[in-house]
Design a protein around this nucleic acid. Structure first.
Lengths: 210, 210
DNA sequence: GTCTATACGACGATAGAC
DNA sequence: GTCTATCGTCGTATAGAC
């Protein structure tokens, strides 16, 4: 955190700021940018519409701050896999971390999905620079594992997409998954079972098990 | 098609009706229900807002008609896999069909994703009945393959979710995928490569290859 | 620092002329 | 069957009282 970013505890201002951000994540994640009203956010905080505008000059900047928040979370959570690791170990760690992230930060995941689905208007630069570079880096590591015969020759970029899609699915399509499985909400053991299932199929699918 | 559903060709009424449905799919798929305006739909058709209200009494019923449209498409495209088939053949056919569907009907896929993401308010009944039954049926077929030792013991429901998520990803997260791969749009050969990649990893991951 | 009041545009929807 | 005009509501955003 920098000194320009308010802290959770401290002055009323800082607590209000954080409360608005938290409420905004929930609202934006369910309805996207356009369909979310400042009224809904202020209701959730328990303050007035006008007060939200006092802290954030308009809806756009509030949305941007929320996205910044999530991008920082994403970047810090994306595991740094290294070329000198065993691919089975590194990929399993990556899959398990992403499954947990989808569980602990489901709203953030849905907000991200909403933004991409609608064309990533506000995240274009992040995708083009930060994330493209991140993928490029991981692709070259995976390729080095393939070249040294440690795993099957699979397309590294699509492997990353497969890990992203299969793990995020449980956050983004939570409603569908829970409805079909006839559950009210996820439980710890179900999350572990999902991680175990994905590790089994994906790692074996890359020639890293059995 | 029933006689209550207008045809593509025929009277002006029928052509207009279909044009509005098509435009609505595009708008709703990008922005979801709430953030889509009837104005945007009528602009896309090239008619007036009032005229859309002449064909559909309100936004809600238009949205419902569009969802019906997509559900029918989904149901007719979901391959009927049978217990007496070889699992490798049946699952490969299912994966390839879903990859193609994400390519040829990307907007429909995104609209569906938007609806689930926002809590599936309009699709709750479909998920609870039609789709849950469909999954139940496929789960028992996959389980029979496992019981007869034809494939590894993997959780059948999660296998279906894996196939759904990994294939839909290329439609729903199209913007992210294309940006990271630095492409303007998908090409036929890329779609084939994706299908091949997913078949390789998922089938091998279930003990159905090598 | 928070609240009331309000401006003003866009929205969904309808009525009525043609 | 389509168009213009218009209604009431809700949206974002601001000004000013306290």
């Amino acid at each position: 955190m920098t000194e320009t970013e308010p802290q959770k505890s401290g002055t009323i201002r800082d607590r209000q700021y954080q409360a608005i951000i938290d409420a905004a994540i929930e609202e934006f994640s369910r309805h996207g940018f356009r369909a979310t009203s400042v009224q809904a956010i202020s209701d959730r905080v328990g303050t007035s519409k006008a007060n939200v505008h006092y802290y954030f000059k308009n809806k756009e900047t509030l949305y941007s701050k929320v996205l910044d928040h999530i991008v920082i979370l994403w970047n810090s959570s994306f595991d740094q896999i290294r070329a000198d690791e065993e691919p089975a170990v590194a990929l399993e760690r990556m899959i398990r971390a992403k499954v947990r992230l989808s569980y602990t930060h489901a709203s953030a995941s849905r907000l991200f999905a909403n933004e991409i689905l609608q064309g990533a208007v506000h995240l274009g630069n992040y995708l083009r620079h930060t994330q493209r570079q991140w993928v490029k880096n991981k692709v070259s590591i995976i390729q080095s594992w393939i070249d040294s015969g440690k795993m099957d020759p699979v397309d590294p970029a699509h492997l990353i997409f497969l890990i992203w899609s299969s793990t995020q699915h449980y956050a983004d399509f939570e409603t569908q998954v829970l409805t079909i499985l006839n559950r009210a909400e996820y439980e710890e053991e179900m999350i572990d079972a999902i991680a175990e299932f994905l590790c089994q199929v994906i790692l074996k699918g890359c020639g890293l098990r059995d």
